[in-house]
Structures are given as C-alpha cells and as structure tokens.
Write a protein that binds this DNA or RNA. Structure first.
Lengths: 179, 179
DNA sequence: ATAGATACCGAACAATATGTACGTTATTGA
DNA sequence: TCAATAACGTACATATTGTTCGGTATCTAT
C-alpha cells in the first residue's frame, strides 16, 4: 500500500473518531469528515464510498489487531488447547482496554450498536468451539447468547465502569453465564 | 387528539414501516416518507422534527402496548407478587409475537439496534425487582446482563427462529441464565 | 537520478434533501 | 353554525451528495 494512501486513510480515521466524540454518527456528514481531515472531496470517495463503509473499515482495523493473536492461536492447535476459554476472554478484554482511546467515540449512540455488531462477528469464531449444548437449548441459541452477552458486557465495562480490571469483568461474565 | 392528527400520524407510521422493509434506516429519507405517505412536506414536520424522533415514537407506541399490562401489574402489587418472573417474561414474548407484523421492518440493520435499545429501557423496569445479586457480581452488572441477553434473545427469535413458541424461548433463556 | 505510475488537489456540476414560511382549503369539535 | 386548527402546496435558501476532469505532487522501480 502506497505511503500516501496509508497517510490519507489514517487522517480520515482520525478525523472520523474525533468527530464521533463531539457529534452523533448520523449527524456527522461526509462533508464534516472532509473538512476535519482537510482533504479533497474526491480523495475521500477514492477511499470509501459511504460513511457506513468507513465505519466498517475502522472497526475492522481495530478488531484485526485485538483478535490477531486469537487468530494465531486458532491456527496453532497446541496453544489453543492449552489456554482456557476464560484466559482467551481475559486476553481479548486486555486488548480492548489498550485500544480504549481510539474506540471511545465509537460507543456513542447508533454507532455503538454497529461497533458491537462487528465485534460479535469476530466473537462467534472464538466462542464456537467453546460452547457446548446443555439440556434442550439449541447450540445456535447458546452460541448467540454467550456472544451477545459478552458484547454487552464489553459495552457496560467501557461505557462507565472502567474501574474494573479485565480479570474482574471476566469473573462477572462467567458468574452470570451458564456454560 | 384530533382525528386528523391521529390519521396523519398513523399514515406516517405505516409508510415508515413499509419503507423499512425495503430499504435501510439510513437510506430512508424524510422525502421518501412524505412520498410514501402522500402527505405535505410541512405536515410531516408538524408531527416530527427528525427521523430519529419518528422512530422513537413508533417504538414507544409498540412498547406501550406490549408492556401495558406489565405496567398495570406493577401498580397492582397483589398480582405482581403472585405471577412469577418467568410468567411475566413469557407474557411479554406473547405480546411481541402479536406485534410481529408491524415490527418486522424495525429489525433490519441499524434500526434493529435502536429498537432493541428502547426495548431495554422498558425491560430494566420489569427486571429490576427480580434480579438478586449472587457472589461478587455488582447488581448493576447483573441487571444489565439479564436485560441485554433477553433483548438479544428476542432479536434471535424474531429474526429467523419463529418456529419456537414463547414458552420455549422462555425456557431457553432461563436455561442459559444464572439467576 | 530518471521516468512512469498514481494519489491527491480543487474547482465545478447537477441532483437531491433539508428545514422553514405562508396563504389557502378543508375538516373538526363544541 | 362557527371558530379553531390540521393539512395542503408552493416556494425558497441552504446543505449534502456523488461525480468529473485537468493539473500537481509524490511514490516506486529501474
């Protein structure tokens, strides 16, 4: 990827994140982003077709980092079998805490919902192998339940309860969930 | 409320719901709604200032109906103490199933997230008295966990698993939750 | 260092959406 | 019947959108 492209892309991301701390996702116009990033109109459209696509790209950038080691460990079966589910969860929480600065704006309003939806897509892959059916509950449902409630746990944590450590959040989660 | 106002309001709601089955929330413009409902531009703005406000009003209309008996039973302490938490949950699920036609469009994309957020606001009130702290988990968290996972259960159910009955969904939910 | 490729600029453009204003018409409720 | 008012519809200024295109600056490979 061209250095100029990386620079422009990064400038757009920065401008977008900054705007989301001041305004709601809906009220942020592409014009706002162009002005904030101080780039040409056509330049923006050369990178992203819509605001939604921009948001998705930003989320992907963040999650690819957060889950990078997760994905690695998926390939390395030895490692994945040695580390417990709880350890992996705690691990993800640590990574999210690191990235907290850049995702703060992503939690406000409608934007937070979209952010969480993408987070869930990544979580499905991690959770799938760890969820076992109990009783008459369909596996499909059990997986969705575990993933959704974890995503909501992340929201609860990063949006007003930062005083807790990743390990504590992990404990709360597993105390509330039947696995 | 004037009969004309009720009529116009209803026409706007119908048009909006219809549009949401065809297009995403973001892509639906106020102009679209005006065209679909076939009303004057200024008439729309006499009722709602923004699209978000319209969505909120529509959700409120639906939930006020779904939770109407719930709210009644909250006032009537005798009844509320006799009916179990599980019964109340099942009751809510029955009402949501009834309203399924009118809320189908509300589940697509970003709109679904906003719909669920409003649903959660109503659920907090119902759940609050039924959630008791266990272990070291903060009451705050336990309540959020129960409400969020129930809202996501509703999403899972109405968005692709209609084959289950309200009682079954209720069972799945309580099987997965530690209370 | 040079040259070819290409990302960015910026100005312009039509098309559409937004929010408001105001005089007119039709319906309502008392 | 009549006063109140909801809805109409036309108009308007403003803003956003998405696209085009020629010129400039920057990059990468040789």
């Amino acid at each position: 990827m061209d250095r100029r492209q990386r620079r422009t892309r990064s400038m757009i991301f920065t401008a977008f994140s900054a705007l989301l701390e001041r305004k709601t996702y809906t009220s942020v116009t592409i014009q706002d982003i162009i002005d904030e990033a101080d780039i040409g109109r056509s330049t923006f459209y050369a990178h992203f077709e819509t605001k939604d696509e921009l948001l998705k790209a930003l989320c992907t950038d963040i999650f690819d980092h957060v889950f990078s080691e997760e994905i690695l460990s998926e390939e390395n079966h030895d490692f994945s079998h040695h580390s417990s589910f709880r350890d992996r969860i705690t691990h993800i929480l640590y990574h999210l805490q690191e990235k907290q600065q850049s995702i703060r704006g992503l939690f406000s309003g409608e934007c937070g919902e979209i952010f969480l939806r993408y987070l869930k897509e990544y979580l499905y892959r991690v959770f799938d192998e760890h969820i076992s059916v109990s009783g008459d509950v369909p596996h499909d449902y059990a997986l969705d339940f575990a993933v959704s409630s974890f995503a909501e746990t992340v929201r609860w944590w990063l949006k007003g309860h930062n005083e807790y450590k990743p390990e504590e959040i992990s404990d709360f989660y597993f105390e509330s969930l039947r696995i």
